[in-house]
Design a protein around this nucleic acid. Structure first.
Lengths: 343, 343
DNA sequence: CTGTTAGCGCGTTCAA
DNA sequence: TTGAACGCGCTAACAG
């Protein structure tokens, strides 16, 4: 019933040895054309399928690649995974999904589970970093398992990264606001312990300074990435003696909260106030007043991460490949910041 | 370097046998407390980790569960997967993701790849069904691999299902529109070859008839689930001599298109026209005019599907378990259909 | 309570 | 060109 046919079964049927069958099937050594064809034919007849598990045990390669993300039901991550899956599946790899829930302990657990499952590679987006985790990461590297960070990266010897240029994203968003005539631009930032948020902030600062605009401490507010935080922060900004006339938010959700609060206070967007978010979450496009944002091309990010893995695993030289791919962010100008008739 | 320590290594160190180590580690047979502790201690010291691959080969169980969805970057599917992962990971299973892209050939490929990888179970949401695929599904059942359909199901002997009551969803949405005073309710439907769409339609019909409202052929339009299709269909509806005054759409995206078109034509929502969608896509909540919709609690769906799998795999009786879990859809009344000051 | 043996299915020596 | 034998790491059957 559930019995699989093995190479032994087909060997027996053909009165040859399993080894011969194995060789014939793998097209490798010198096998007489006759027996090879015979083997293929009866393999087909008996509906033979190679047992991946045995192969994995034998070779130490599982043909699985692990992916760790904070959570899968977030557009950027599911899109990246989609890209990864698309490029890996065609190469015979299966993708194993783990969620860290931004919980470091869980993330370490996931890492060890994947190592233990002998995945051929790990592609992940980091949560906050601590020394404990660094040890877990070292374990991956030490085992010689290809490791690739995407989005939330960290510079570690032997680890490849695929990211967008967050600095440029911050710069472009801010420059765009300035181009629209905004002078007092606030920034709703993420946690600087995560590199990408610091980079976006740096881009913001650079754009300000390149345009001779002074940075104001009170225009920088740190938030989580929840909608309510955007509302709260915006309320605070509007209470200032000198109000800003634009917001660049490092998160689309926070930018949404900002827009909600602005409209609640009767402030006209984009006439009196412009807003730009970050990530191109699907809802930004569907809002009544569509939101300008930065696209991170997450699906490409996934595809590229997958390709980097493939290069690394294909590479036979014992020279370690360590790639740093940086994608260009794309500014999407939409209603929330479009004073001029662009597009 | 990358060498793992095996039970042989620790057996050698302790001058005992690998079998003893295995038994001690698995806490199973009667092992002297002393040796067990000794084994655990040195296992710890030598940083032993059980080789899942060997275990898998031996037992025929991979500890992997395959999940096939049309595409992962769609809220309902990523949310379901999130739920599945959460409930399975804690039980020691890894989740393998496959995308069918609504392409039947690819879906069959995925099925065979998963069978071949000897997953312990398959949880999937079907694309369109044909005889070819039925054969592939039979292959799963025949191998005795637990199979669970979610969302898009199909009645097959030996296959469990976890779905929402789509009929009830359609009924509730329609009844709600009637309660709002709408009399001429159109339905934008999906492909009836997929059961869930037919069920939603049937619920719509039943609600109409229960309220003594006549069904009109011209108020039923089939669409894909794209925004543009919603616009197009709505345009067609508005050209009718007798226009509808409400739309129940089987898809949030299509409902969005409808709302866009209605507003473009200057029709006031919800005063002159009400709209209800289906699926509770995240954007429905964030729209300026938030959209009423039906929530499918996809995360719960995933969790339950995972649990059904666990029950099935834990079940030792050779009685086959075949569960049919039907979740209740929840109507979320929001701006697009809320004439009365509800909530 | 523990050692011995065998086998899961495959690829890969070493001989022939 | 093919066969025989072995090992990947683990568990289970059968002794003792």
């Amino acid at each position: 019933m559930g019995d699989r046919t093995t190479i032994y079964d087909i060997a027996k049927r053909l009165n040859i040895t399993a080894a011969t069958v194995s060789r014939a099937l793998s097209n490798n050594s010198k096998i007489s054309k006759k027996t090879r064809e015979l083997v293929f034919k009866t393999a087909e007849e008996m509906n033979y399928r190679q047992n991946k598990l045995a192969l994995a045990l034998k070779s130490g390669k599982s043909n699985n690649v692990g992916v760790i993300v904070p959570r899968i039901d977030r557009n950027i991550f599911s899109a990246v995974i989609r890209g990864i899956e698309e490029n890996l599946h065609s190469e015979g790899y299966q993708v194993i999904i783990c969620q860290s829930h931004d919980d470091e302990k869980l993330e370490i657990e996931n890492i060890d589970a994947l190592i233990n499952a002998q995945v051929d590679g790990i592609i992940m987006s980091l949560t906050l970093e601590t020394s404990e985790k660094n040890k877990a990461i070292k374990r991956i590297v030490k085992k010689g398992i290809p490791l690739i960070f995407f989005d939330r990266k960290k510079d570690i010897e032997g680890v490849s990264t695929v990211t967008i240029n967050d600095f440029e994203g911050g710069y472009k968003a801010t420059q765009h606001l300035i181009d629209q005539g905004c002078k007092e631009i606030a920034h709703l930032a993420g946690d600087f312990a995560i590199e990408i948020y610091e980079d976006r902030y740096k881009g913001y600062r650079e754009a300000l300074s390149d345009n001779g605009i002074e940075f104001r401490e009170e225009f920088l507010i740190h938030t989580s990435s929840k909608v309510e935080d955007g509302q709260k922060a915006t309320r605070a900004l509007l209470k200032l003696k000198e109000r800003p006339d634009a917001i660049f938010s490092a998160s689309d959700f926070v930018a949404l909260g900002a827009i909600q609060e602005l409209r609640a206070q009767g402030i006209k967007i984009p006439q009196d106030f412009c807003v730009v978010g970050f990530s191109n979450e699907p809802f930004t496009k569907f809002m009544e007043l569509s939101m300008s944002t930065i696209d991170q091309s997450p699906r490409d990010m996934g595809k590229i991460a997958a390709n980097v893995f493939l290069e690394q695993v294909t590479n036979n030289d014992n020279v370690k490949i360590q790639k740093k791919v940086v994608l260009a962010p794309e500014l999407l100008i939409r209603d929330s910041s479009s004073r001029l008739p662009i597009k």
